[in-house]
């Protein structure tokens, strides 16, 4: 009987990272921009997707992957907008992983422009899992409070842009968009911030322009 001590240094997220890299490469080859949406539950991810579906209708084709612990509800809402949607029910898991996206990827139409991935509503765990996206949007709704960035630094640190949602409620809440943006930028300097009301269609033009620009850069090989 001997005791062996092995120095292994193995990354627990390496398998996910490799799967994500393969997805990113495949989508780049197909000229599709993948956008991963992160937020807490009820901050307006699906409503934002419905609003973007309306805005994009004439110019771009979209597909959506919905991640939820249970139910097809979100996918049904998006399909009602004429957008093909696939629901991944994680059955309890708190986040999507790259291999789950990989399993759906073959069914995504080849001629789409944007693939939106709505992650499980959770501001903690999804931040650690790369899904092969080009753009990660973190949503923060006005009822949640403008003090959230410092409480969930990983989510904001990993984001490419912050979307402040439900701005139509600002008259009724102590939420200060400037404070939320400033706090997020202490974590991630220069983070682009968009303030939108998906319900009223306000502030969406800037977000649409940002996403269209990212698609343009991907296709011209600059991303």
């Amino acid at each position: 009987m001997t005791v062996k001590t092995l120095t292994v240094v193995r990354d627990l997220l390496a398998t996910n990272r490799q799967a994500a890299a393969a997805i990113r490469e495949e989508l780049r080859g197909r000229g599709i921009l993948a956008v991963n949406l992160l937020s807490s539950p009820g901050s307006g991810k699906t409503t934002l997707l419905e609003a973007l579906a309306d805005r994009f209708r004439d110019r771009y084709r979209l597909a959506v992957i919905e991640g939820d612990i249970e139910t097809e509800r979100d996918a049904e809402r998006v399909r009602a907008k004429g957008v093909p949607a696939w629901q991944i029910t994680t059955g309890g898991a708190c986040h999507l992983e790259a291999k789950m996206i990989g399993q759906v990827l073959d069914r995504i139409p080849a001629d789409i422009d944007f693939l939106f991935i709505e992650n499980v509503g959770n501001l903690v765990c999804p931040a650690s899992y790369d899904l092969g996206e080009q753009v990660r949007l973190v949503l923060l709704s006005s009822p949640e409070g403008d003090d959230k960035p410092a409480k969930y630094p990983q989510a904001f640190l990993s984001a490419d842009a912050l979307v402040l949602t439900k701005t139509d409620l600002l008259p009724y809440l102590p939420f200060d968009p400037a404070r939320a943006a400033a706090e997020a930028r202490t974590i991630k300097p220069g983070l682009p911030v968009f303030a939108v009301s998906a319900l009223r269609g306000e502030g969406l033009d800037e977000l649409v322009a940002y996403l269209a620009g990212a698609l343009e850069r991907l296709r011209s090989g600059r991303a």
Binding site: M1, T2, V3, L6, V8, R10, L157
Partner: peptide
Amino acid sequence: IVEGRELLVERIELETDD
């Protein structure tokens, strides 16, 4: 950020018959 994101198995101590 140089460190602080790690999630690594660094070492494993095993009992073997040899």
